[in-house]
Structures are given as structure tokens and as C-alpha cells.
Amino acid sequence: MNSGTLRTIRTLEDWSRGGSWLHRRDPRFKLLSALLLLAAIALAPARDSRGLLLSSAAAVSILFIASVSAALPPLSILARGWVVLPFTGVFALLAWLEGDPHRAAALLAKSWLSAVAVVLLMAVTPLERLLAGMQSLGVPPLLASVVQFVWRYLHVALDQLRRMQVARLARGGERRFVFAAATVAVLFASSAARAERVHRALLARGGEARFLLLQPLKTRPADLGLLGGALLSAALLMASGGWL
């Protein structure tokens, strides 16, 4: 699981360093556009299968076109949305067992499409720009710092997890739940110790829990164009779900 997660994170990092028209847009406008799309995906009326199918097809088309315009592999972007399905799948299963297969399908489709929209946002925006955009839009700096630290140290924690798994196997440990639980406990303890060391390093470098930007955010006319496109896309989604 961890090597797959690491691979996904690294792929997103590589993609986010591209130079396409979409990559160059102000992260604040990309965030607002993504939020618009997410709202439209969530709210698009899907009273029956046909409505759901039409709005989902419209969303897939929009995300596909956006991926292609950003010089990213659209099928890979669409595929990475599956990551949320194990979670929403549980609720979809419950809905299906309650005799509401339409609601189950809507849950799966909307959660998948939402995840794809977020993946696309991350694939066209380097993390530091995304966080700067979030802060500029009013997200508390502390929250942005937490996201940044989680992203940075996820690699370190997953790498440690991999080493611990190898060591356990080398000692003849089997893949039992009790070993997995112990591994997680040790990982938590060592992460807490690392947090202490990182805080010391932050202090030693004269820093506080805030990060200053090397390249300030700048809005250009094309950014408004992106927002306009997102508005149109959102309207299209709403309309297609309503059979128009």
C-alpha cells in the first residue's frame, strides 16, 4: 500500500511542475474553479439513471479535456480518482442493501468525479503554490502549515513503515493484524519524536509556523478566463443532470 501511495504522490509532484496554460494560472483561481466544479458535481440533479449518466459523462468530458489541455495523461488522472472508492463504497453498499441502487451509483460516481477533480487540481499546481493560494483565500496559516508538513513527512513516515515491514519479515514475522497494529503504534511514537526534532530545527533556523513565498501570487486576465470556464462547466453539469 505504502509504495503505491508514494508512487502516486511522486507522480502528482512531477505533473504539478509542468508548464501548460493551466499550470501557469494563479492557484487561487484554480482553487475557486475546482471548488465550483466540486459543488456542481455534488449538486447536479440526478433524479434517475439517465440524469446521473448524463451529468457524469459531462463531468468526465470536462475533466478529460482539462487534463489534455494541461498535457497530462487523462486516463491516468481519471484512474487516480478510484482512491476514494474504498471509503465511499461502504456507504454505497449500505444504500444498495437498503434497496436504493440509484443512490448507491450516485454516491460512487460523484465521489469518484470529485476525487478526479482534486487530483487534477494537484496535478497542475505545485503544493507550495496551492497552499499559498489557500492562505490567500483565508485558510488559516496554521492549517496550511499542517498540510505542508503532512505532505513532506508522509514520505518519511511511509519510508520508515517500509523498513519496519522488511525488518519484521526478516525476523520471521507474519502479516498478522497484531503485528500491523504494533507497527502503527511504533510509527506514531517515532513520528511524535520526529515532530519534536523538526520543531527544534524550525526554531534553530529562526522560523515560526508560517512560510513566506519566494514568488508572490499574481493575477492575470487569463485567470479570469479559467474561472469563466469553470463557471460554464458547472452550469453545463447542472443542466445535463437536469436533462437539458
Binding site: 505545485p126 503544493l127 520526529r194 526534532r197 530545527a201 512560510f211 519566494l214
Partner: peptide
């Protein structure tokens, strides 16, 4: 790994001067 906490090398190295 305790010391490098920013997303890119350049930003991390520039952290100290920016804080100053």
C-alpha cells in the same frame, strides 16, 4: 529530514533569509 521541511530545495534554502 528533520531540517528540510519545505516542498522544494530552493524554498527550503531560502527559508532562513526570508525569516530574517
Amino acid at each position: 529530514d528533520d531540517q528540510l521541511f519545505l516542498p522544494t530545495v530552493l524554498e527550503d534554502v531560502a527559508f532562513g533569509p526570508l525569516e530574517q
